[in-house]
């Protein structure tokens, strides 16, 4: 009998594997002690934090510009955008250190976000993802696409489109 139950569980699991197809892959990163994710489709590359040159008379969320192999790319503080504190704020030249910049490409826009550390990659499926409708029930914040449930953690997925829209609005 117990063998029968076990077989059923295995079969159900196998069925789940087929049913819950991968929606997208995401990269999970840390800001202070919180985890956030971003859709890998938009991620161009990850680089170590390099010298950022602040553009005068611009919003403080824009940390400045970096020289990425001859291209000039604006880099933003995701912490400041999400209402956290960032000691990089207001510095004329931010020197490179052990942190990372996520280089994001959305349509024609290429931009960077400073993050504290990279946690891991994850395949997001229908099983472990709650889309924006779920978030809209309790938040009107358009900066998130949904929530990834990973082990015991709930990880907000950054909406790249929403983020760029917000940055265009506040510039």
């Amino acid at each position: 009998m117990s063998q029968e139950i076990l077989n059923r569980v295995v079969l159900e699991e196998a069925e789940h594997k087929v049913t819950y197809k991968t929606l997208f892959s995401a990269i999970i990163f840390m800001l202070e002690h919180s985890l956030f994710a971003i859709n890998l489709d938009y991620l161009q590359e990850i680089i170590f934090l390099k010298d950022i040159f602040r553009v005068p008379n611009t919003n403080e969320r824009l940390l400045g510009l970096i020289n990425l192999r001859g291209s000039i790319i604006p880099v933003f503080s995701l912490k400041l955008i999400l209402g956290m504190k960032d000691h990089l704020k207001g510095k004329n030249i931010i020197k490179g250190d052990e942190r990372y910049i996520l280089i994001i490409k959305y349509e024609k826009d290429l931009l960077g976000f400073v993050v504290d550390s990279i946690y891991k990659n994850i395949d997001v499926t229908e099983l472990n993802y709650r889309g924006s409708e779920y978030i809209k029930n309790w938040s009107e914040n358009l900066l998130f696409d949904g929530i990834i449930l990973d082990e015991d953690k709930e990880i907000f997925t950054i909406s790249v489109k929403g983020l760029i829209g917000y940055l265009t609005y506040i510039k």
């Binding site: 553009v55 005068p56 970096i66 020289n67 001859g70 000039i72 604006p74 265009t168």
Partner: peptide, 27 residues
């Protein structure tokens, strides 16, 4: 001249940026 993405970067008095000899960015 490296034009700035006017959608995201808008600074009065700065028209563009450029990379100078030492690889730094100048406005």
């Amino acid at each position: 001249i490296k034009p700035l993405n006017s959608k995201l970067v808008n600074s009065t008095g700065i028209s563009a940026a450029a990379i100078i000899g030492n690889g730094n960015i100048a406005f």
